[in-house]
């Protein structure tokens, strides 16, 4: 039994059950808009509506000093929406499949993993739109865009780790769901999605740079490095800040590992707790 907990065996097993992973993802993608009038278009309409609302509020009311605020926001909002939807969506991934979990064996990790992958794919669907808008806005497209898959991979690792943690704890303690939803709402404002991190005034730094909110947001919040890197390669066409991206990468791997251990711990009693 001990062998079953080695990550390499988990990966092998998930590979053996790849067909289940694929059909779960396509089931979620297909079933989501089944019977709706605009169907698949909703994948694009949601982020665009958010974009319009945030742009109106932050550009014209709060007057964020950014020339092309809509684009500035768009490149960050897409990955953030994917991240947020995955984390919130994973909360019910085990509970929602209780009839399966109680009756058939399959690697349970597949349930949150499929949610995480679904929203990564959702994000990828939006990338062609992003490019069209970027070309229309005559933004410069540089070779730094080649780093996009790397940043996406880091985001995927990080959000999958969180999905593992929350989906499994939520089986035992059902109010984790409420906590996570409130926390992710605050998280949006702790991450430079709507604003630039440089906009945090210097007067909130104390003791030189030791208590510098800009620095600590980058270290404590892995999403800062990820979102800033997306913005660097898409919006500024420049190199990402490799220090912060590296920190995010390390945090992502650690999160995935913690998620794996947490999941294994709670997985043993899934069939009884559901």
């Amino acid at each position: 039994m001990k062998d079953a907990y080695k990550p390499i065996n988990a990966i092998k097993e998930i590979f053996n059950y790849r067909e289940l992973l694929i059909s779960l993802i396509s089931k979620t993608l297909n079933a989501r808009y089944k019977g709706s009038f605009l169907g698949f278009l909703w994948t694009f309409i949601n982020p665009i509506m958010q974009l319009i609302i945030y742009t109106l509020v932050f550009k014209y009311i709060f007057k964020v000093p950014e020339d092309n605020y809509a684009m500035f926001l768009f490149v960050a909002l897409l990955p953030w929406t994917s991240f947020l939807s995955a984390v919130n969506g994973s909360l019910d991934s085990i509970i929602g499949s209780s009839s399966l979990v109680k009756k058939i064996y399959f690697p349970r990790l597949i349930l949150p993993l499929s949610i995480s992958l679904t929203f990564i794919i959702d994000y990828l669907y939006c990338i062609p739109i992003l490019f069209i808008v970027m070309l229309a806005a005559k933004m410069k497209i540089t070779l730094w865009l080649l780093l996009f898959p790397v940043i996406l991979l880091i985001q995927f690792i990080y959000q999958t780790g969180l999905c593992f943690i929350f989906s499994s704890i939520n089986v035992k303690f059902r109010d984790v769901r409420q906590i996570v939803i409130v926390a992710t709402m605050a998280w949006l404002y702790l991450t430079p999605v709507l604003y630039k991190i440089e906009m945090i005034p210097d007067k909130y730094s104390f003791f030189g740079n030791i208590v510098n909110p800009r620095l600590w947001l980058g270290i404590l919040n892995p999403m800062t490095g990820i979102i800033n890197s997306y913005r660097d390669v898409f919006y500024y066409g420049s190199s990402p800040d490799f220090l912060f991206l590296g920190i995010s990468c390390a945090a992502a791997v650690i999160t995935l590992f913690i998620g794996y251990i947490t999941f294994n711990y709670f997985e043993r009693t899934f069939a009884e707790d559901l």
Partner: peptide, 26 residues
């Protein structure tokens, strides 16, 4: 043990065969 776990009522019989067989690891 319990048959038909994981059948989705809105999907067709054929789609459910694929889905169910995938759960069994095929």
């Amino acid at each position: 043990i319990e048959l038909g776990a994981g059948f989705h009522p809105d999907f067709t019989g054929r789609e459910n065969i694929y889905m169910n067989a995938a759960i069994f690891g095929m």
